[in-house]
């Protein structure tokens, strides 16, 4: 059974490594990820959002809905902490 598990792990590992062979190089400007929306962000972020920090522009403007969710996650963590820990006296 252990041998079988080891063989499965090795075969899966080989498949995963094979999958990375034709991935683009690190930081390749011609990779699909760098060609899709990144050039637009880099070229037009300052002009469209008047924000020199592109990271902030992407985080809080282009991907604003995502940041709203992140804030909700923080809020949920705090609410969970209150629900689990806080004990109040019974109000009569």
């Amino acid at each position: 059974m252990r041998i079988l598990a080891l063989i499965t792990v090795i075969i899966t590992g080989i498949i995963l490594i094979y999958g990375t062979v034709d991935m683009p190089d690190w930081g390749d400007p011609n990779s699909p990820a760098s060609k899709h929306v990144s050039p637009e962000y880099i070229e037009e972020a300052l002009e469209k959002t008047a924000t020199p920090n592109i990271v902030t522009a992407v985080l809080a403007d282009y991907r604003s809905y995502d940041t709203l969710g992140e804030t909700a996650v923080i809020f949920t963590a705090g609410i969970a902490c209150i629900l689990i820990l806080r004990r109040r006296r019974q109000r009569k």
């Binding site: 002009e47 469209k48 959002t49 008047a50 924000t51 902030t56 522009a57 809080a60 403007d61 604003s64 940041t67 709203l68």
Partner: peptide, 12 residues
Amino acid sequence: AQARSLGILGIE
């Protein structure tokens, strides 16, 4: 553009 900048500030 300036409104976007101020909107970012508001949500921050």
